[in-house]
Design a protein around this nucleic acid. Structure first.
Length: 340
DNA sequence: AACTACGCCAACCGCCGAGAA
DNA sequence: TTTCTCGGCGGTTGGCGTAGT
């Protein structure tokens, strides 16, 4: 059970491989096979440890390695396999010919994990996150409306909507207050920020400062409208990954269009507005958000004393008990069906 | 143009299990 | 049974390139 001795040897070269070293390694393995990795460096004339040679060969020099960007199919495969196998990179790699475990691991850590976090999905469980951070992306999207309205007032003709965006912005501030309160009460005896979820939470916190994408201000339009509403108690809660990127991904342009078809809901009067996709000029099958009219916000004291669990329990409650002042997004069942 | 921050990814580190001595 | 070597694995690091200021 001892440690590999080769790593402890002194005088062996480390760091990036030179083309000459690559050539020596490839030439030797093509002629003799790798055989014993421990003996290989000496036989091949390399001043490296066997482990370094093995990694260089398996991760880079092997002739059957596929390089370049991951395809959509490969990405889906990784997501699926990771939901089953978790961080068993070598096992995942066996299902992706030409890809190494190292390459898949890097791709996961630099792309897919962040993508899932932005969608409000726990990258370890592949389930919607149920803690207070789970609804953060939605909240940010709402809060950013305020900036959108401020920067592009000509896009909107609904004074009530402006008030509602102001309310969403206030909610963002209160949410941050809650987070600070939560952090302050846990720093002394809690290592949540160093836990896997803590890291995700830190990344989620970074999203708080995400700006309104520039193209939004330019009133661009994107394909395929998406409809969802805010605060409609009878609708299905939004934890669907398909639409959030439209709100969060700067690569996905979108714009808004308001209309004054106020509706009475359990949340009070709602104004709808539409998220338009590129090339979508019609409003009959376009999509609307229903923003609840502002209500009296909880006081700072009430907010800071709130149990974060209350927020998440609201989030998981489809019976409409959610506080109107914690912005929550809901899908109508028909829309969920359309998406799926 | 210079500096900084950030993302990407090749390579390393340290642990583990299998199997040989 | 114990000890040791080896190959394999997942986590982490550090250097490089690029975007932003």
């Amino acid at each position: 059970m001892g440690r590999s001795a080769c790593c402890d040897e002194n005088g062996l070269k480390k760091g990036p491989w030179t083309p000459e070293e690559d050539q020596k390694l490839v030439h030797y393995i093509k002629r003799h096979g790798h055989g014993s990795w421990r003996a290989l460096p000496r036989l091949a004339g390399l001043n490296r440890c066997g482990k370094s040679c093995r990694l260089r060969w398996t991760n880079y020099l092997r002739p059957d390695i596929k390089r370049g960007k991951f395809s959509q199919d490969e990405e889906q495969t990784i997501l699926h396999l990771h939901s089953v196998l978790v961080n068993k990179w070598s096992a995942i790699a066996t299902h992706l010919p030409g890809r190494t475990d190292n390459e898949i691991k890097n791709f996961w850590n630099t792309h897919l994990k962040k993508k899932l976090i932005q969608m409000g999905i726990d990258p370890m469980t592949h389930q919607p996150r149920t803690d207070i951070f789970a609804s953060l992306p939605q909240l940010i999207a709402l809060a950013n409306l305020k900036e959108l309205l401020e920067n592009s007032p000509h896009l909107f003709d609904d004074q009530a909507l402006i008030l509602q965006a102001e309310a969403a912005h206030l909610a963002k501030l209160q949410y941050m207050q809650l987070l600070l309160h939560s952090a302050a009460s846990t720093t002394t005896n809690d290592d949540s920020l160093s836990s896997p979820n803590g890291i995700a939470d830190m990344e989620a916190l970074n999203l708080l400062s995400s700006p309104v994408p520039a193209h939004v201000k330019e009133n661009q339009v994107i394909p395929n409208s998406s409809q969802f509403s805010v605060g409609n108690a009878s609708s299905q809660q939004l934890h669907h990954p398909t639409l959030l990127p439209h709100l969060l991904d700067p690569q996905v342009p979108f714009s808004f269009q308001t209309s004054l078809n106020n509706e009475n809901t359990e949340m009070g009067n709602c104004s709808s507005f539409t998220m338009l996709s590129q090339g979508d000029n019609q409003t009959d099958n376009s999509s609307s958000w229903l923003l609840p009219s502002p209500t009296i916000p909880p006081t700072a004291t009430e907010t800071s004393l709130s149990n974060p669990g209350d927020v998440s329990s609201n989030s998981s409650n489809n019976n409409g008990a959610a506080s109107p002042y914690w912005p929550e997004l809901y899908f109508d069942d028909s829309i969920m069906h359309e998406i799926s």
